[in-house]
Computed example of a mutant assay.
Amino acid sequence: MSWKVYLSGEIHTDWREQIIAGAEELKLDIEFYSANTDHESSDAAGDHLRSNDVPFWRDHQSSKVNAIRTKNLIKQCDIGVVRFGDKYRQWNAAFDAGMLAALDKPFITLHDEGIIHPLKEVDAAAMAWAETPQQIVEILRYVTNN
C-alpha cells in the first residue's frame, strides 16, 4: 500500500525535507504533500482575481485560493503531520489539525516542549506528539511497515 502523508505547518525550517529524506532512506512507500510553502507565491495566490490595496482583502482572497489545494490534499491523505514552530503563530496549522480531526484522519503533531500548554487541545486530538522530524520518520516506518 502506498501511503499519502500531508505535511502541514511552519514553513521557515527544513523539517519537511528531513522527514522526506528519512522516509526515502528507509525506502518507505509514502507520497508526501503539503500546502504551498513559498511564502510570496502563497500570499499572491489570488492576485490575478482582483487588485486589492487593503492587505486584509488580499490575504482573504489568496487564502481561499490556497484552501482549494489544502482542503483537497487533507481529504486525500492517510496521515497528517502538523508542525508548530516557536517563532510564528501558525493559525493555519491549527486549522489543518482541526480539519484532520473533523475528517477522522490520524495526525501527529510536531513541536518543542516549550509550547505544550497552548497546544494541549490539539495534542489531545493527535495520535502522537513528536519533538523531532526523526521521531516522525520512525512513526511512519512503524505504521507503514507493520
Rank of each mutant, 00 (worst) to 15 (best):
T37C: 08
E31N: 06
E25A: 14
K71I: 10
H60K: 15
K64W: 11
Y33A: 11
I74R: 01
A45C: 04
E31F: 07
K105W: 07
L73E: 14
A93P: 01
L26A: 15
A101K: 06
G98C: 05
K75S: 11
D38W: 06
K27W: 02
P106Q: 09
A101D: 09
D29Y: 08
G80V: 06
Q61F: 04
A35N: 12
A101N: 13
F32P: 01
W57F: 15
I74E: 08
D96F: 07
N52G: 02
G98L: 04
D104Y: 03
F56M: 15
N92V: 09
L110W: 05
W91A: 13
F107Y: 14
K64F: 10
G98N: 04
S42T: 07
D38E: 04
R58A: 12
S41M: 11
N36A: 07
V65P: 08
A93K: 01
P106G: 06
A45D: 08
N72M: 10
S42L: 09
P55S: 13
L26P: 02
Q76H: 09
D96E: 15
E40M: 01
N72D: 08
K75F: 06
G80N: 04
G98V: 06
W91M: 12
G85A: 03
A94H: 00
N72L: 13
E40L: 06
D112L: 11
T70V: 10
N52V: 01
D43G: 07
N36Q: 03
E40P: 00
N72G: 14
N52E: 15
D53C: 01
S34W: 00
E24N: 08
K87S: 09
Y88L: 10
R50E: 13
H48L: 10
D43V: 01
R69V: 06
L103Y: 15
D53V: 05
K75T: 07
D59V: 06
R89P: 04
I116Y: 14
P106R: 02
L119C: 03
H60N: 12
D112F: 03
G85M: 02
E31Q: 10
I108T: 01
E113Y: 12
H60Y: 15
L26T: 04
R69K: 12
D112Y: 03
L119D: 09
Q61K: 10
L103N: 00
D47R: 02
G80E: 00
Y33M: 11
H111E: 02
M99K: 07
I68H: 05
V81I: 11
L49E: 11
I74S: 06
L26C: 03
L103G: 02
S51P: 05
R50H: 05
D53A: 13
V54H: 14
A97G: 02
S34T: 14
F95H: 10
A102P: 07
R58I: 08
M99F: 12
W91Q: 10
L26W: 01
I115A: 00
R69A: 12
L26Q: 11
D53W: 03
P118R: 06
N72S: 15
D112H: 08
T37M: 12
E25K: 15
N72Q: 08
G114N: 14
L119N: 04
L103S: 09
Q90M: 12
H48F: 13
G85R: 03
D78N: 06
D47L: 04
L119R: 02
L119E: 06
R89S: 13
H39Y: 14
